[in-house]
Design a protein around this nucleic acid. Structure first.
Length: 826
RNA sequence: GCCAGAGUGGCGAAAUUGGCAGACGCAGCGGACUUAAAAUCCGCGGGUCAGGAAUGAUCGUGCGGGUUCGAUUCCCGCCUCUGGCACCA
């Protein structure tokens, strides 16, 4: 009678092992100096309501790595938490008449259940939610430290305002002029707001990248662009009867061609220069100042300007140049003033043509001379300097150095570096965020609250009407405060912090989530850091990943840690698309894992997501492809059940006793161990690791019938054990069960990862491709270890090769032993 | 415009250091089992030409060149797509 094969009841199996892992605290860890540590981190989710397969993909990657590293002997920290403050909760509260906190807590509970149903290996005792006052009090603590050091400051400046979210946004969150969250068009408003001086760290953010060799180049490049460091020079142009104009340029080599200066409409010198201007000019100036600044910054507005009536002196040529105001010059970059060199700058050229200003070439391109009167476009490349007394004949690069040195020695300029990066605007005019811990005192001004008064807790009784601004302003008991300095009546700050503050340092908190006298325990953090692998979406390349690098550098300066970068390796996983668009709640195209789990089980879902595409590329969700991994899992299941023999003694396979089939099986098993190990550990090519396991399974099916009796049985047992262990990081529940079915008694999570036996890889001969003039003509079997002469002889004795070589002269033979022979004939 | 990444069968993809292009899987086709279907198991599978077939010839990794005995891989020049930045002086 044929053995009745136990059916694969995934729902029962998965729930049983999830309960077992939970009950025995399998994935809880503590600092243990006897083992190497590994900190495996994923970006914490926003509790929007439902986990979708986009999240699942992220967490499957870290889960495989966690389980793998653990079996490799590492003490692995794999924590999870909730980025729980933020606008969607408040908007939901307004819409549904609930409180942001109850909406958030309910979502966390639901999403947590979903994650647990997927069997992820989290250290749940370290779970954090950023909306807990025990967490955000440390945001406030950090803020006070930064306030003391002048890193946090309040200033009036033009800021991005989202008219739909009713709050200001950081520069990083105004993507291409639209709100990162709701994509409404951003307005620029002048407002007094709180900033963090990230620009103090702009050079460190760039220079420390040399330590980030395991970060992908595209992320570093995006960050470089964002910081936007450009080396140049600052030069003063003396103004007739007025204050000097300081300009910034990266092309001081063109300064003899500067035929006018242009100031931004908001430049502080404009008013005095135009004090004598007529009504028409004043009206034009007012109009330029009223133009939409966002549009001006993005170049969508036609270049326009007016002559101020003033003149300056070009400090190099001595030439008298008119001073203009132009809408294309931006107050927020460089000095807000430029020297205009129309011959060598496209924008200046366009402006000069429009207003009939002089175009004077001073750079000779390699192709020949330029004539300002007939130029059709600016020449912006480098060349040889002409018409520049004292510097003629020099190439641009040399002229830049010499002219900068000259300006410095003459006292009217010097080298200067400009940056695109702006300070981080962290104020938000919304309720559901960390209250900024300061009060406004009529006598003492802006005063930070006392550390002992932290946390400043969000009042639960704010009205969520969606009207009349920040709900906190309406909570009398919250706004009324006393001044920490004088004890007099004061008004509490009602702005809250950007939620990117919360996520800038949360990964330190995981190391000691209950520490209550500091943001974290220094020793615990020292043990776990740096993060060995950080997995998350590429969309955070210049938001979270810049902010968290900045925060770590600030923490170092505060003496809390002694390193300057949080993560050794960054792995940005590809996004999941559905119907051609990124899967996200706002797009309304999310797929919840629940239905898939119901039909196929969590193990199949995990396998499918990891098999469908390499983890770093985007993948298109498709329901049909999931059949393949499911069938594979069933194939493994049946194979194991067929050979399940609880209690069977195990023996190490004896290589010399194995049949040819037995040896072939062992070879495949150990080749697979090597492949899967390398695919997971080095490359994170999890899709090819799964493919290798499918191949192994196919091979065992092919070979099992031909196994030669008792002496081959240990090889089969070894192969099945290895298959289940190698598969376990991907499909942990089914593998736990199969491990028991194979006769083991303990959970496999602590089982050592299989090791490659080099002896098993050995074989008598290998297939070698034979090419004639680079074209494959035959495949021959060559004994392992054969020398080049033997390769050549075997190749030439092959009939199909003989036919190709016949009557021709062999001019060269290329031999790659064990792989290929190439015969070059004429 | 600048920067980065990508382009391989009907589809998702693989090829780890310049060495057998298309592993593995989906969809498809053929066979076995079955009264039948599902499931399962076995097999086929880039194009063109020749052949009944095994097979052989030839083309083939976005396009055009180059280096090399040999190129999906390296170099030069284009095209297309994706992402980031963009009147940044």
């Amino acid at each position: 009678m044929v053995n009745e094969i136990k059916p694969y009841e995934f729902d029962e199996i998965e729930r049983r092992f999830q309960e077992q892992w939970r009950a025995s605290g399998t994935f809880e860890v503590s600092e243990d100096s006897s083992r190497p540590k590994f900190y495996c981190l994923e970006m914490l989710p926003y509790p929007s309501g439902d986990i979708h397969v986009g999240h699942v993909r992220n967490y499957c990657i870290t889960d495989v790595i966690t389980r793998f590293k653990r079996m490799r002997g590492f003490n692995v920290l794999h924590p999870i938490g909730w980025d729980a403050l933020g606008l969607p909760a408040e908007n939901a509260a307004i819409k549904r008449g609930t409180h942001p906190e109850s909406w958030t807590r309910a979502n966390i509970a639901g999403m947590k259940a979903q994650l647990q149903r997927l069997g992820f290996s989290y250290a749940w005792s370290r779970e954090i939610a950023t909306c807990d006052a025990s967490y955000y009090r440390w945001n406030q603590w950090f803020f006070l430290k930064m306030l003391e050091r002048g890193i946090a400051y309040r200033a009036n400046s033009p800021v991005n305002w989202c008219p739909s979210c009713l709050t200001v946004l950081a520069n990083e969150q105004a993507e291409g002029g639209t709100c990162w969250r709701c994509h409404s068009a951003i307005e620029i408003r002048d407002m007094e707001q709180w900033f963090l001086r990230i620009t103090d760290y702009q050079d460190a953010l760039l220079d420390d990248m040399s330590a980030l060799s395991a970060w992908p180049e595209r992320v570093l490049q995006q960050q470089r662009n964002w910081v936007g460091r450009s080396a140049g020079a600052e030069v003063s142009f003396p103004v007739e009867g007025g204050e000097d104009i300081r300009i910034f340029t990266t092309r001081i080599d063109t300064i003899y061609g500067a035929t006018f200066c242009v100031l931004a409409p908001e430049h502080p010198l404009v008013d005095s220069l135009m004090s004598g201007a007529d009504q028409v000019a004043q009206a034009t100036l007012r109009r330029l100042r009223g133009q939409d600044r966002r549009a001006r910054m993005s170049g969508q507005v036609e270049k326009e300007g007016l002559f101020t009536g003033g003149f300056a002196k070009n400090p190099f040529s001595g030439e008298r140049v008119p001073i203009w105001v132009g809408n294309f010059v931006l107050m927020g970059y460089g000095t807000g003033a430029i020297m205009a060199v129309p011959a060598h700058d496209e924008r200046d050229f366009e402006f000069a043509r429009k207003y009939g200003l002089r175009i004077h070439p001073v750079i000779q391109p390699p192709t020949g001379g330029l004539d300002g009167a007939i130029m059709k476009e600016a020449y912006v490349g480098p060349g040889e300097v002409t018409g520049s007394a004292g510097f003629n004949g020099l190439p641009s690069e040399v002229a830049i150095e010499r002219m900068t040195a000259h300006a410095a020695s003459q006292g009217f300029g010097g080298s200067k570096t400009a940056y695109r990066l702006k300070d981080w605007l962290i104020s938000r005019q919304r309720y559901w965020g960390t209250p900024i811990p300061v009060v406004y005192c009529p006598k003492d001004g802006v005063v930070g609250v006392k550390e002992s008064d932290l946390p400043i807790v969000l009042p639960p009784d704010a009205p969520f009407t969606g009207e009349g601004g920040n709900p906190l302003e309406k909570v009398e008991a919250f706004v009324r405060a006393t001044c920490p300095k004088c004890g007099g009546a004061a008004r509490r700050e009602t702005d809250t912090m950007d939620t990117f503050v919360d996520s800038s340092w949360y990964f330190y908190r995981y190391c000691s989530p209950t520490t209550d006298d500091a943001p974290f325990d220094k020793a615990a953090v020292k043990y776990w850091f740096p993060i060995d692998l950080y997995v998350g979406g590429i969309e955070h390349a210049i938001l979270h990943l810049v902010y968290s690098r900045f925060w770590t550098k600030v923490m170092k300066d505060l003496g809390l840690i002694d390193w300057g970068e949080p993560a050794a390796r960054l792995f940005p996983q590809g996004m999941v698309h559905n119907n051609g668009e990124v899967m996200s709640k706002s797009k309304g195209n999310t797929i919840a894992p629940d239905d898939v789990i119901k039909r196929y089980g969590a193990d199949t879902l995990r396998l499918y997501i990891l098999f469908a595409a390499p983890p770093e590329l985007s993948m298109e969700w498709s329901e049909t492809g999931i059949e393949g991994p499911h069938r594979f899992l069933l194939r493994v299941w049946r194979l194991v059940q067929k050979h399940a023999r609880p209690g069977r003694p195990r023996a190490h396979p004896d290589g010399s006793a194995l049949s040819d089939t037995g040896s072939a099986l062992r070879r495949k098993v150990h080749q697979t161990i090597a492949r899967v190990t390398g695919d997971i550990d080095e490359r994170i090519h999890l899709n090819t690791a799964v493919a290798a396991l499918m191949e192994l399974t196919n091979e065992i099916y092919r070979l099992e019938e031909g196994l030669g009796g008792m002496s081959d049985l240990p090889a089969l047992a070894e192969g099945l054990d290895a298959l289940v262990l190698l598969l376990s990081p991907f499909a942990p529940h089914a593998c736990e069960q199969m491990w028991l079915d194979l006769g083991h008694v303990k959970s496999l999570v602590d089982e050592p990862w299989p090791r490659v036996d080099q002896d098993a890889l050995r074989e008598a001969s290998t297939e070698v491709a034979v090419q004639v003039n680079g074209k494959i003509r035959a495949r021959i079997m060559v004994p392992v270890g054969a020398d080049e002469a033997a390769h050549k002889e075997l190749a030439l004795s092959e009939p199909s090769v003989k036919a190709q070589v016949l009557g021709k002269t062999l001019v060269k033979t290329v031999i790659v032993a064990g792989r290929l022979v190439n015969l070059v004939v004429k």
